[in-house]
């Protein structure tokens, strides 16, 4: 973490936090005094070098706070007399949000696994198996596509998918999906998570007795909004639409027409992408725009200059100064 502070009539302070930084360079682009410099983003992402993703130059910085206002990922914190500029009326406000609705959540834990920034914390209490005497389960093998969602999410490891060839690159080739009733607690996560509605599950003991309540999972799920970068993995993977994300930018990401991707020799774009939005397919970079936040880190990292982003709109309001408005507009293209 690097920090610049100035004491005077007001005590102004700018801090950069590596842990929240994506190395995207938005702050570097927007700084009016070229006081910020991007560090070696790719070597840091690959773990070859240690260090700050952004370096602050205290000789150049005028402590205006524009960079901190422009960072959509809370990596720069600007304070005046200890108060964060993000909470002050005169500074711009980012309106992108993230959250998980606890009422809807079934505590399957998929979002927490998918989150590339470890921003989701979940704990859950499973129903007590002793109370449940028996139940019935059925998997419709004709409907089942062997996607493995149920197997992955089962809290008691009761589900097993038989694969024809477990090492095959196509994971969707299976022969049967079985639920081990001696392990099953009839929580119903698998039923709710199944994209093909192939699973039926019922606790017969609860069905015929008023005294035994339906098995239920209770828990807590918390989204750390400061860590969240709004990539929307949680929203896309949630089987019950409990996660909601709005992104900081709208726009598009695309490959330049004459781009010759060097694929597996390079893969710089994939390594610097904090959103896990890029993968290498057939020796070529493949971008999944759903998960992209249009930060531009990949575009900077690509030695061939093959990736471009066009930001149409910023989800930002309350920009009061004309000069600042012009600087923010420069982020659009």
């Amino acid at each position: 973490m690097s920090k610049i502070a100035r004491e005077g009539k007001e005590n102004r302070c700018l801090e950069h936090q590596n842990s929240n930084c994506l190395g995207c360079g938005i702050c570097v682009e927007i700084c009016p005094t070229t006081a910020l410099k991007l560090g070696p983003v790719l070597p840091i992402a690959r773990g070859i070098l240690q260090g700050d993703l952004v370096a602050l130059d205290s000789n150049k910085c005028c402590l205006c706070g524009l960079c901190a206002s422009a960072c959509p990922f809370d990596a720069l914190k600007f304070t005046i007399d200890g108060e964060n500029s993000r909470n002050m009326d005169k500074y711009p406000k980012w309106n992108h949000q993230s959250g998980i609705d606890e009422e809807t959540c079934i505590y399957c834990g998929k979002c927490s696994t998918a989150c590339p920034r470890d921003a989701i914390f979940m704990n859950r209490t499973l129903p007590d198996r002793k109370e449940l005497v028996s139940g019935e389960t059925e998997v419709d093998q004709d409907k089942c596509i062997f996607c493995g969602m149920c197997e992955e999410s089962c809290p008691t490891d009761a589900i097993k998918i038989e694969k024809i060839n477990p090492d095959s690159s196509n994971p969707f080739i299976g022969t049967s999906t079985k639920i081990d009733e001696s392990k099953c607690i009839y929580c119903g996560i698998c039923r709710r998570i199944c994209p093909e509605d192939a699973i039926k599950i019922v606790c017969t003991t609860c069905m015929y007795s008023d005294k035994i309540p339906d098995p239920q999972i209770s828990g807590h799920i918390v989204m750390d909004e400061e860590k969240c970068i709004n990539c929307s993995w949680c929203q896309e993977i949630c089987p019950v639409d409990a996660a909601h994300i709005t992104k900081p930018f709208s726009g598009e990401i695309f490959f330049e027409e004459e781009f010759e991707c060097k694929g597996d020799s390079c893969h710089a774009c994939k390594d610097v992408c904090s959103c896990n939005a890029i993968s290498m397919v057939d020796n070529h970079s493949y971008i999944n725009p759903q998960f992209c936040v249009l930060c531009g880190a990949c575009s900077r990292a690509c030695p061939q200059k093959g990736i471009s982003i066009k930001r149409k709109d910023l989800n930002l309001t309350n920009v009061r100064s004309k000069a600042w408005n012009a600087r923010f507009s420069s982020l659009k293209s």
């Binding site: 790719l42 060097k262 020799s265 390079c266 710089a268 990292a301 030695p303 061939q304």
Partner: peptide, 12 residues
């Protein structure tokens, strides 16, 4: 050398 230019871009 595969001409990826990664070294060019990252040489300090």
């Amino acid at each position: 050398c595969d001409d990826c230019d990664l070294c060019i871009q990252n040489c300090p």
